Each structure stands twice: as C-alpha cells, then as structure tokens.
Simulated assay, not measured.
Amino acid sequence: MTAKLQALILAAGKGTRMKSELPKVVHPILGKPMVAYVIEAVKAVGCDKVTLIIGYKSELVRNMLTGADVSFVEQPQQMGTGHAVQCFAKEIATMPEHLLVVCGDTPLISTSTLRQMIEMHNSQKPAITMMTLNMENPGNYGRILRKDGKVFAIREARDCSAEELKVKEVNLAVYLFEGQFLKDNIFKLTASNQQKEYYLTDLVELAVQKGLPVVSCIEKDESSTLGINSRQHLADVSAILQQQILDQLMSDGVTITSPQNTFIGPDVNIAPDTVIHPGTMISGRCSIGRDCVVGPNTHISDSTIGNGCNLEACIIKGASITDNSNIEPFSLVEG
C-alpha cells in the first residue's frame, strides 16, 4: 500500500485558546514546530506524499516549514474537518488510493498504532479505518456509536443525547479512507448540526448506509493522543517528549546526572559513555561523540563535538570541536 498512501494534515486553525498571533501548529516544542512531529510520524509509516491544510496566517506556516518536503492546500474559511478535506479534493487532480487524515496539533501520535491501522486497512479493506480510545472520562470527545459490535456513527459530544454521552469509546480524529469512497462521498456532507460545520465524522454514517465496512483501531496509550489547545497542553506535551528523549539517550549509554535540569532537543545525537551534567542545554542539530563530559551550565546549538571532549560552563554555537578538546569555562565558541 505504501506507494499509494498519502497523508493529509489538518493545520488551518488559529488556536484561540493559545492566546497568540502565531498559528497553533507552528508553536515550538523543544525547538521545532509541533506539526513537524506529525509530519515525521506520517512519513515514518510510509506516506509518500504529505499535504497540509492551512488557513490562518498560511504564509507564516509555509515559511516555518521550508524544507519539510510537504505540499499545501488553503482553507480560507474554517468550516469544519469535512470542509478541509473538500478543499483538498478540489485542488488535486486524482484522489490517492488511500488517504490518511490526521490533526496537526497531535505531536505525540503513535507510529506503531498508525502502522497497525494501515495493516488493518490493508487486510480488511474497509471504506474507513479510524483510531479510537476507551476513556474513563471522555469529556468533549466525539463518541463511537456501535450496534451489534459494529461502528455505525460518530457523534460529536455537543450533538450527543444523554445516553450517547455515557459511551466511553471516543474518536481520535485519525482516519484512513479508501480513496474511491472518499471521492464519491466527500461532497455529500452537509452542515446540519449545531456548529453549522461540515463534519468528516459524518462519512461514517454514509458508509454504513451504503453497507460499506467501517473498522476501528484502538489506541492503548492515552498520552499519545494528547492534542494541544492551550499553553498548559504545550508544556505537558513538551515535558513528555523531553522525558522520552532523555530516557532513550540513557538507554543508549549516555549518563545524564540530573535529567530534570537538562534540556536536549529532538535532533541531537550523543554517543555512549558521554556524561551530561545539570544546566546543560543542547538544541538544534547536534552530534556529540563518545567519552565527553558536558556541563554543568553549558549551551550547545547546531554543533559537532568530537570524542573525549570536556565542555564546562561554555557556549558553543554552530561550531565543530575536534577530538579531545578542552573548552574552558566562560568560553564562547562560534562557527
């Protein structure tokens, strides 16, 4: 399926609860736009083309993703997720055989669950495969409605009856569509709901009405589903991603003496037997060799550090440090 699989990332919103003029999807997490993590995830599972739906301050989004190897489609008015996919359908010459639709504000999205979802879609060949989660407190998530065990609808929380609100299985807004079904039905969506928006979720009922199968892939890790709608969410997700990075480095043989006082970005490589002391910040694209001692209170950005180096209380910017170098405290080294 890989050569016929494309991804569409919904990234048009402003994110009013962020209280910012910056489009939500380009708010930085550990030094890079949150949507960059989503782009990396869909590429990792085999999407050979990635398109972003953009709207609010679209030129800024384009500029901040220069070099990301993605395409863009404009959604001038944000009239719902279904409308976003309609904008995509109008712009493209041919609908892909399979289209993965995800949100741009979910940087923790699980590549393992996406792969499982793709495998399920490939083997069962439904019209729609979607990702769901069982939550004890579903809140404002859309509910998955089933009859005899089979999905027959997704109901937005604001449109649910009191009985439907008791459902624990929720929609995570991650969909894999069979392309022909999407092409035939995306413009059949209507805005007959409280929000007067075009809901992508209504395609589930359209598929069921036509007797076409709809299947769900259940996510087990609730943290991977976290979307970002506020500065608090941004901080929560940043902390999770930072801990994942530190845990992986320590598993790979790097000593980090005070993880809670260390910042290491997502594009940093550190060889085993290197020691990182508190107050160290390593950001941008960096490579650090074996048997180094870094810190305390050292800042390194976009640099290459050789093997056996000692860097204490210094700043390294865009530099290349040779093996066995000793950088004195309070030094500034720039490339």
Results as ranks from 00 to 15, higher is better:
L5Y: 00
Q6K: 07
Q6E: 15
K14D: 04
G15T: 00
M18E: 09
S20H: 06
V25N: 01
V26H: 06
H27K: 09
P28F: 06
G31T: 01
G31E: 05
I39E: 12
G46E: 08
D48N: 14
Y56K: 02
S58Q: 08
V61N: 09
R62E: 15
M64R: 15
L65K: 11
G67M: 03
A68K: 01
V70Y: 10
P76I: 05
Q77S: 15
A84S: 14
C87G: 04
P96R: 10
E97K: 07
E97W: 00
V101K: 11
V102Q: 02
D105S: 06
R115T: 07
I118M: 01
Q124P: 08
I128T: 09
T129S: 09
T129H: 08
T129A: 05
T132C: 05
L133Q: 07
N134L: 14
G142V: 14
L145T: 00
R158G: 13
D159M: 08
C160V: 01
C160R: 03
S161H: 11
A162C: 13
A162L: 15
L165C: 02
V170H: 07
Y175L: 03
E178I: 10
L182G: 00
K183P: 09
L189V: 04
A191M: 02
N193H: 12
Q194Y: 13
Y199C: 02
Y199E: 03
V204E: 07
A207I: 04
V208F: 04
G211R: 05
V215L: 10
V215K: 13
V215M: 10
S216R: 12
D221G: 05
N229S: 13
S230K: 03
I240Y: 04
Q242A: 15
Q244G: 01
P266C: 08
D267N: 12
V268D: 08
N269K: 14
T274P: 03
T274C: 11
P278Y: 01
I288T: 00
G289A: 11
G289W: 00
N297G: 08
H299Q: 13
I300T: 04
D302N: 09
G306I: 13
G308D: 12
I316T: 05
G318K: 12
T322W: 10
N324M: 13
F330L: 15
G335Y: 09
G335A: 05
